[in-house]
């Protein structure tokens, strides 16, 4: 493992250990509903399903097709806020 992924793993472990990961996840979920992202995603998924036909599409097909679009559509403000919180968390647990 390179240094970067070691760091990621360490941060992820700390987030899980302190219960922060769960809170961040729920926070993100709420933010994404609020900013309309979830509705956008739902519409995109429906489009894909309509295009391919319900019989011929799996969850994984959807994930592959939608993930890049989904990432791109997350508002900067949401990303920024999550980053702030992770930073604040790390500042508090700076033994890492």
């Amino acid at each position: 493992m390179n240094k970067d992924s070691q760091m990621r793993a360490a941060i992820n472990q700390k987030l899980i250990e302190m219960g922060e990961r769960e809170r961040l996840k729920e926070l993100l979920r709420a933010k994404l509903v609020e900013c309309g992202w979830k509705d956008q995603m739902k519409a995109q998924c429906k489009d894909v399903i309509r295009e391919k036909g319900l019989e011929h599409v799996t969850v994984e097909d959807l994930v592959v097709e939608i993930t890049p679009k989904g990432r791109a559509l997350v508002p900067d403000s949401v990303k920024k806020e999550l980053l702030q919180r992770i930073r604040a968390f790390l500042a508090q647990h700076s033994t890492l």
Binding site: M1, R8, A9, N12, Q13, K14, I16, E17, M18, G19, E22
Partner: peptide
């Protein structure tokens, strides 16, 4: 999955990695 207690969270943080590639995420 939900790991409500400090004990289960500690364990989850340590043990939950892919047994084949070691990934956390």
């Amino acid at each position: 999955v939900w790991s409500g207690s400090a004990e289960t969270r500690r364990r989850k943080a340590k043990s939950c990695i892919c047994h084949m590639c070691g990934a956390h995420l």
